[in-house]
């Protein structure tokens, strides 16, 4: 127990397989992760790599196939409905698309009062009003927004309500699933700054998921790079961005266009496409696209290895640098 004091979430060999007609789809395949209290962790990967499934599994919105999940050192893998209620107060989720994650027939007041009522956080209507006013103020919105319906709000305002809903239960940890990908760049900046400020005020831990590599770099302390259900590289954000080691991380980062006309992408940094998670490659899942592939890579799955600078990389290559 003692060694887990700082760790808010830990997963051990977490797996989530979905049954499909063609066989099990290995969406999350043996993920080991530790999230420390107070940090911002960023999980980056391309669509279909299992980012969202991983988060949904950790939140127990879907049942894991195998492995364990610990919250504050307590194994929550087998928690059932009633026990989960308490857990929902500790972790919450902000969804990707604010247009579809708010109920169009509920006013802002209805949306925000629901978590308060379900968890008995306020005793009467007046207290609820006060609490919601506080939340709206924190989000830079006015009390009169309370009676608005989602269609009367702009995209950025809707996402603020999405964040306020996640904050309503006073959680310790918030998962942010692509919180700005449906928004324009000018609005994105506002939301990111707002999230940053809120984190300090409320003493939160953030778990970002995004396919936007520069966004993850800007917000995170530590990042994990996910490919086909597995984490291939994990460590401090500056280390990985300044010198990506895993061949996939390298290719992925080199694919990102820079907003500078004098810096161009050279050729095709990553050839081929992501294989199907229903039938992943036998050995390293990146082997079919890897420029440095060797015979061992096709037979044996690489495990995350600790390097001298503190990061972990899952690659068979010798002297990783």
């Amino acid at each position: 127990m003692i060694k887990l004091v700082n760790t808010i979430i830990e997963t051990k060999d977490l797996k989530k397989y979905f049954n499909t007609l063609k066989g099990p789809c290995k969406a999350v395949n043996k993920v080991n992760l530790k999230i420390k209290e107070g940090e911002t962790f960023g999980l980056v990967g391309e669509s279909g790599c299992g980012k969202s499934t991983l988060v949904r599994t950790i939140l127990k919105l879907i049942e894991p196939t195998s492995g364990q999940i610990f919250l504050d050192g307590v194994d929550i893998t087998d928690y059932k409905k009633k026990q989960l209620m308490a857990l929902r107060k500790k972790m919450s989720l902000v969804f990707q698309d604010p247009h579809s994650s708010l109920n169009p027939r509920m006013t802002v007041f209805d949306t925000l009062s629901r978590p308060l009522r379900i968890h008995n956080l306020t005793k009467n209507n007046q207290e609820t009003m006060i609490e919601i006013t506080k939340l709206l103020k924190l989000m830079g919105m006015q009390p009169e927004h309370m009676i608005r319906f989602p269609h009367e709000l702009s995209g950025g305002q809707k996402q603020r309500i999405g964040i306020a809903r996640a904050l309503a239960v006073k959680p310790e940890l918030i998962f942010l699933d692509e919180p700005t990908s449906a928004l324009d760049v000018s609005v994105q900046t506002k939301i990111l700054k707002l999230l940053n400020k809120t984190k300090k005020i409320r003493d939160l831990t953030y778990f970002y998921i995004s396919h936007d590599i520069n966004l993850i770099r800007v917000v995170s302390d530590r990042i994990g790079v996910m490919y086909l259900g597995q984490i291939v590289e994990i460590g401090k954000v500056d280390l990985i961005y300044n010198n990506p080691i895993h061949p996939y991380t390298k290719g992925l980062f080199a694919s990102v266009p820079e907003p500078d006309p004098d810096k161009k992408i050279k050729g095709e940094p990553l050839s081929g496409e992501v294989p199907s998670p229903v039938n992943p490659p036998m050995g390293c899942s990146f082997a079919p696209r890897c420029p440095f592939v060797g015979p061992k890579c096709r037979e044996e799955k690489p495990q995350l290895k600790l390097l001298s600078d503190g990061r972990r990389v899952a690659c068979h290559k010798d002297n990783l640098k």
Binding site: V185, S186, Q188, T189, K190, L192, K193, N196, D212, N214, L215, R217, V218, V219, Y241, V256, E258, P259, D260
Partner: peptide
């Protein structure tokens, strides 16, 4: 132009 995230941008420097 100043609200786009690049390799070296910091959150504080982004324009809104």
């Amino acid at each position: 132009v100043h609200s786009v995230l690049g390799v070296k941008t910091l959150l504080e420097n982004l324009e809104e």
